[in-house]
């Protein structure tokens, strides 16, 4: 369980994270979604005790990271896959990490085997592809068999096979009852890999919920095809709905649900050939949500200086 309480981080005048407040629960994969530069990595670095918050706190199972006695056995993290001395081999990198937290050496071999880089473990990390580095980073995160795991943009650089592997892997970790916190700027990725999603934009909390909840929060529209589009459009507008021309002689109606469209059509005596409720795609939801956050910030700033 990760608990973020009123967390803020400023670098000089720049606000990287502003009053974030949420929980990441065990047993599910929690996605941390936001555009690039929205404060995801900063939040993760604060959770890991690397950056100090300006105010508020981040705790893991009730403890601040710096209080943990053997952190690698409680929290595993992949923050930056390329953050390994390029001249050192993967095996030696992991052996040093294991030694620092008194993790048995045989565990190094286990995690190397698990992520599938045993055969290149004695090669210098500088020669690794991004995908191989990601696997090494995952191995390092798993070294202490921790209950809490953080992954910052883990999918970057992975090939399709690797992406499928990592999704199943997150799922497995969550099913084992672990806390899995995964950041991404890709809504499509989160939609398939995360159970719960926390959305932030420009350091501000935007919303939190399951994929379904997020989609439902942004109202959908209804696609209508009829014998007399022009008359239907007039009638729908009169009832207060927003009507737009869609492709192929259809109308996109919002502000009223499918049932409402049916009632209006019946009253006008117009035969419908199609009536399809449309859900907003997750991508649209994301754009919608974060566009608001961007507008909010840019509108707010001039007033701050008054």
């Amino acid at each position: 369980m990760i608990r973020i309480e009123h967390l803020s981080k400023r670098y000089g005048d720049t606000v990287a994270v502003n009053d974030l407040d949420f929980e990441v629960r065990p047993g599910v994969v929690t996605g941390f979604l936001g555009p690039n530069g929205s404060g995801k990595s900063t939040t993760m670095r604060i959770i890991m005790g690397l950056d100090a918050p300006t105010s508020g706190s981040a705790t893991i199972n009730g403890h601040r990271y710096r209080e943990l006695k053997a952190p690698l056995r409680e929290v595993g993290a992949l923050l930056d896959a390329k953050a390994v001395h390029p001249g050192r081999t993967a095996r030696n990198h992991l052996r040093a990490l294991a030694a620092s937290n008194q993790i048995p050496r045989k565990r190094v071999e286990e995690v190397l085997e698990f992520v599938g880089i045993s055969s290149v473990a004695d090669k210098k990390v500088g020669g690794y592809s991004l995908g191989m580095s990601q696997r090494l980073g995952i191995a390092a995160a798993l070294l202490g068999d921790p209950q809490v795991l953080l992954f910052d943009e883990p999918v970057n650089g992975l090939d399709p096979e690797g992406i499928r592997w990592i999704r199943e892997f997150f799922r497995t970790l969550a099913m084992e009852g672990r806390t899995v916190f995964v950041s991404s700027h890709l809504m499509s990725e989160m939609a398939v890999s995360a159970d719960q999603i926390i959305v932030i934009g420009r350091g501000h909390f935007i919303t939190q919920g399951s994929v379904d909840q997020l989609t439902a929060s942004v109202g959908g529209s209804v696609l209508v095809r009829s014998a007399d589009n022009a008359a239907l459009r007039t009638a729908l507008r009169a009832s207060g709905a927003v009507v737009e021309e869609a492709n192929d002689r259809a109308l996109t109606v919002s502000g009223v649900d499918a049932e409402g469209v049916g009632v209006v059509a019946l009253a006008e005596g117009i035969a419908l050939s199609e009536l399809t409720p449309q859900r907003a795609s997750l991508e649209e939801v994301f754009m919608d949500l974060t566009a608001d956050a961007v507008e909010y910030s840019s509108k707010k700033e001039p007033f701050d200086h008054e």
């Binding site: 670095r45 005790g49 990271y65 929290v75 953050a83 390994v84």
Partner: peptide, 10 residues
């Protein structure tokens, strides 16, 4: 290399 973060996290 950035590995200071790994070191300080451990």
């Amino acid at each position: 290399s950035g590995s200071i973060r790994t070191t300080l996290a451990a």
